[in-house]
Design a protein around this nucleic acid. Structure first.
Length: 428
RNA sequence: GUGGACGUAGCUCAGCUGGUAGAGUCCCGGAUUGUGAUUCCGGCUGUCGCGGGUUCGAGUCCCGUCGUCCACCCCA
């Protein structure tokens, strides 16, 4: 529904009060979980120099080639709305001098931007929660990070997820494997579809990801990355798998999991769900041991992951959990100018004494009937009633709204002392 | 970026082979002139996504466009 020329930008959505509960729940759980594992929050800009993303994500990736929101500043500088967070965090660690042999465990969250065709679970502005560990060669940190995500799903009550793992090896090993792959697919070029022929030149590893059923035969005959790993990567990956198994964290090795960003090396992982349609990745990441020195910092092995907040929120809502909007504890009904004056001052003093209680003062007038209707809809368990009758006698009426009867009058001076106990009996 | 489905009140939807828009819900008021949620009565809300075309006449047919959804692609 668009009112004459007024519409949100395509692929960019509002999050309304009715749906914010699930977001805040996820934000609270992750904040506490990351702190428990020793991660600290940092915040980085949403805009960086375009070259940062080209150098880190890779010139020939889909993201850089066709999905970035890029604009030119007045002085000619090319800037880009971040399509992911790792590049900005790596840049921040270097430019703020945070490295120097240090070990950093960091997380951040916020909007990312990719100019893709929108679909359920895929938006042009979307939100990621991002976790990065810099200065750790693993595989112990890989294992702990994956265990942390597994714990997150348990805490959130999300069950329809599966962990996929792979190792991309070192850049050298991957380069050698890539040559094997190009040789193989060139021999079978006739069997490739148009997309795959295009990928053969740019990113042959992605051919392995093809969902075209007609490609299954030629893809399944292709050499596997896991068979061409260098010895160190092999040992790293074996240790990772063995420990996860010992910790009873289920996983499947997916030799075709190659990831779309160039900076990954060795461990890559992805949590997928069968509950969200084709946008099924809810959390994925991997090691990027070479990224920071490639950007000009000192050599710093690192691993990180990004979680798609909209997708995880969709799972939460689908799971049937309720995230009710908080109701006021007390709704204040005040009829008449004088009652309104007295009521406003009274509620301020009640707020002074009970900062944790939510008082909602009726605003916008209305007769008693209308005000009680609003009080009922607010969900408050208790109404505080001020009218001419009460004012004359220096009292307020307290009326329970979730049960019959029980209305009582209380002197104004005693309200602050009595309200908590009355609320307790109403909850019990 | 490619292909397909859909787009009528704030929300959920109806509207037959073209005759000029309806229901439920929500909201507001009254029955109950100081007491909500139930019941009854009454009332408000629409450039029928937008623009063009065909026609005496278009929500209905045609074209374009925008948006949503689905698949591809890509990925979180």
């Amino acid at each position: 529904m668009s009112k004459a020329g007024l519409a949100a930008v395509r692929g960019m959505n509002d999050v309304l009060p009715a749906e914010i509960g699930a977001w805040q729940h996820l934000e609270r759980i992750t904040r506490e979980l990351f702190a428990a594992y020793g991660y600290e929050e940092l915040r980085v800009p949403m805009v960086e120099q375009t070259t940062l993303f080209k150098r880190s994500i890779g010139e020939f990736t889909d993201i850089v080639e066709k999905e970035m929101f890029t604009f030119t500043e007045a002085d000619g500088e090319s800037l880009t709305l971040r399509p992911e967070a790792t590049a900005g965090i790596a840049r921040a660690a270097i430019t703020n001098g945070l490295l120097r042999g240090a070990r950093l465990k960091l997380w951040t969250s916020g909007p990312m931007f990719r100019h893709e065709r929108p679909q359920a679970g895929r938006y042009r502005q979307f939100t990621q929660i991002d976790v990065e560990a810099l200065g750790f060669a693993g595989p112990d940190i890989d294992i702990e990070m994956i265990a942390m995500t597994a714990r997150l799903w348990r805490q959130l009550g999300i069950t329809r997820v599966q962990l996929k793992l792979n190792s991309l090896g070192t850049p050298d090993a991957r380069k050698a494997y890539r040559e094997h792959l190009v040789t193989y697919f060139t021999q079978h070029a006739a069997a490739l579809d148009a997309d795959s022929q295009r990928r053969l030149g740019g990113n042959p590893l992605r051919i392995l990801d093809s969902k075209n059923p007609a490609m299954q035969a030629v893809v399944s005959g292709a050499p596997l990355l896991t068979e061409h790993l260098d010895a160190e990567s092999r040992a790293h990956f074996d240790a990772l798998c063995a420990t996860l198994a010992a910790m009873n964290i289920p996983y499947v090795i997916d030799p075709r999991l190659v990831r779309g960003l160039d900076y990954y090396s060795r461990t890559v992982f992805e949590w997928v769900t069968d509950a969200l349609g084709s946008q099924n990745a809810i959390c994925s990441g991997g090691r990027y041991d070479g990224l920071i020195d490639q950007l000009g910092g000192e050599h710093t092995p690192a691993i990180g992951f990004a979680m798609g907040v909209e997708r995880v929120v969709a799972l939460l809502r689908q799971g049937g959990q309720e995230f009710p909007r908080p109701a006021p504890h007390v709704y204040v009904v005040a009829s008449g100018d004088r009652a309104m004056q007295v009521g406003l001052a009274l509620v301020e003093s009640l707020r002074d004494q009970h900062a944790a209680l939510r008082f909602e003062m009726n605003q916008g007038g209305g007769n008693f009937k209308a005000q009680f209707r609003r009080a009922d809809r607010s969900g408050a368990p208790l109404a505080l009633v001020l009218g001419d009758n009460e004012l004359e006698r220096g009292v307020a009426a307290l009326k329970p709204l979730r049960q019959e009867g029980g209305q009582q009058e209380v002197p104004l001076a005693e309200l602050a002392a009595r309200i908590p106990a009355i609320l307790t009996t109403l909850n019990g």
